[in-house]
């Protein structure tokens, strides 16, 4: 004779089987990150254009050091987005996730070093807040877009996943802010790092509400 648990179990399998319609497979995290990057770069460029690009933009775009920072920023944002999207795929190889995390952290370390070398100018409170706001505005839509993509996956580690998503969004927003502002002193760079930290920590705290198992 079947135990009650066996009956429940068989009934569960029957119900799951009966409700199992065809489902579209989730594309590879890198492809999904490319989609996100396309939408987000367009949005950040739009915000930069609306706010007015920095006066010397044409000049600095000829500077290899500036261009390399922009490329590095976009690349790090892409890697962080890949890491976030990989985390919602059960069983995605851990070494790749670790590599992506290390790349992102290396970029952050470089940012801090750059801040410490940029001099000790007096912080301008108004310009600082303006910069902070620009980063947050630039990060908002990329974050919403990435959160929507993450919600299609499995919420295995919500806090880490959302933290990476916030990191990706703010890294890209930082690139947008660099196109609007000159970053002539350490204060501005620290404002960017602060915006990145605030946005990432806040998003991580809201993670259990943003990311949970979805019914399909």
């Amino acid at each position: 004779m079947d135990r009650p648990h066996d009956q429940t179990h068989d009934r569960l399998i029957a119900e799951l089987t009966a409700s199992a319609a065809a489902v579209p497979r989730l594309p590879h995290p890198a492809w999904r990150a490319c989609t996100w990057l396309g939408v987000s770069v367009a949005y950040v460029a739009l915000v930069a254009w609306a706010q007015g690009p920095r006066d010397d933009l044409a000049l600095v775009l000829r500077d290899p050091a500036f261009v390399s920072k922009i490329v590095l920023g976009v690349g790090a944002a892409f890697l962080a987005a890949c890491a976030a999207l990989a985390m919602v795929v059960p069983g995605f190889p851990a070494p790749r996730r670790v590599a992506l995390a290390l790349a992102t952290l290396a970029w952050l370390a470089w940012m801090v070093v750059e801040s410490s070398r940029a001099g000790v100018a007096t912080p301008d409170a108004i310009a600082g807040w303006s910069c902070f706001a620009t980063v947050l505005v630039c990060a908002s839509i990329p974050m919403v877009t990435l959160a929507a993509q993450l919600r299609r996956g499995a919420a295995l580690a919500p806090v880490h996943t959302v933290a990476y998503a916030a990191l990706a969004s703010t890294l890209l927003a930082d690139v947008g802010a660099r196109l609007c502002d000159g970053h002539r002193d350490a204060a501005h760079l620290l404002v960017h790092v602060a915006a990145l930290g605030v946005f990432t920590v806040t998003a991580a705290m809201l993670a259990p509400r943003v990311l949970r198992w979805q019914a399909h």
């Binding site: 429940t8 569960l12 409700s19 199992a20 497979r25 590879h28 059960p90």
Partner: peptide
């Protein structure tokens, strides 16, 4: 727990890459 795992498998079955 086995039943919870089966429910979870069902909810995220689209994340499996063949």
């Amino acid at each position: 727990v086995v039943q919870e795992i089966l429910l979870s498998v069902h909810a995220v079955r689209h994340t499996y890459d063949p």
